[in-house]
Nucleic acid binder design. Structure first.
Lengths: 157, 157
DNA sequence: GTTGAAATCACTGAAGG
DNA sequence: CCTTCAGTGATTTCAAC
């Protein structure tokens, strides 16, 4: 179970993962060694999965987000579609979703014309793909991978 | 324009943002101070947006992902819906998408019953919401926010 | 781009409450 | 579980080249 202090540490690291450890210690009011001990522990427990740099999509010509529903027919146990989709660099997420029994893919390209090319040339050409339905993103109001951390959230250790 | 070395630095930081700087310097074959200078520069230019800790969703009771399409009618210029959605902690992404002229929301909860509660109590109760269509995620094969970095990607500086 | 010097920080281990 | 105190090595900044 994570206590208040560990929660606070995680919140600080969610904002700025490269903050000096002494500064974290100052903010939570503990000795640096104790803070380090808690962080290492959470890394060991798999609570902390890793640290990533966040790049600005606009600076890399990845302004256009789109969600594509892919209707496909695959033999049970086959993974051709998933493997093919996974290898497409522009695709950030691949989910199998209920409702329409299809794959939902989130991707990021430069513009709508590249979106068209990608769908036609790389997605619809995959074996098993029957049809696709695309929702191009016109406006994004919130986009984060952050998981809200609260005292009650974590399963007992 | 980012050269090969800066690209390599970004790739290393995408994998492990907390890798020691001397190790980055060794891998790209440069002096540590020069590597730091490049990183600071990219931070200033907004190429690097920040550094985040990656938490394990399962450890925080956030196993269930869902995408919800929200059909709403709003007066032009009003932001009630967006603001209300933004404040819901479980919602990670809010996009306005083409096609159905609606909002697409990505959220993360503990299980399907919490998903039901969230949609009924927090989303459908928002003023202006007409209807919702939910795609619960049954299986996730790929999920990353990583932007592929390549030499040709970045606009000239 | 480099090197080198100096201040700060990371990390480890030990002693103790 | 926490603290403090050393000691070693890395980070970081700053200078000069």
């Amino acid at each position: 179970m994570l206590d208040e202090i560990s929660i606070k540490i995680l919140k600080i690291l969610q904002e700025k993962a490269r903050i000096p450890n002494v500064e974290v210690a100052r903010q939570v009011g503990m000795a640096p060694s104790a803070v380090l001990e808690r962080i290492r522990k959470m890394e060991m427990q798999g609570i902390i999965d890793g640290y990533e740099v966040r790049l600005n999509p606009e600076q890399f010509n990845r302004k256009q987000i789109a969600f594509v529903f892919i209707n496909a027919r695959e033999k049970p146990g086959e993974l051709i579609l998933q493997n093919a989709l996974s290898e497409i660099q522009e695709i950030q997420e691949i989910h199998f979703v209920s409702g329409d029994d299809c794959y939902l893919v989130k991707l990021r390209v430069s513009d709508t014309s590249e979106l068209g090319n990608l769908i036609r040339e790389k997605i619809q050409s995959i074996q098993g793909v029957i049809s696709t339905r695309t929702a191009a993103v016109l406006n994004t109001f919130k986009e984060t991978a952050r998981i809200p951390v609260q005292e009650t959230d974590v399963s007992g250790q």
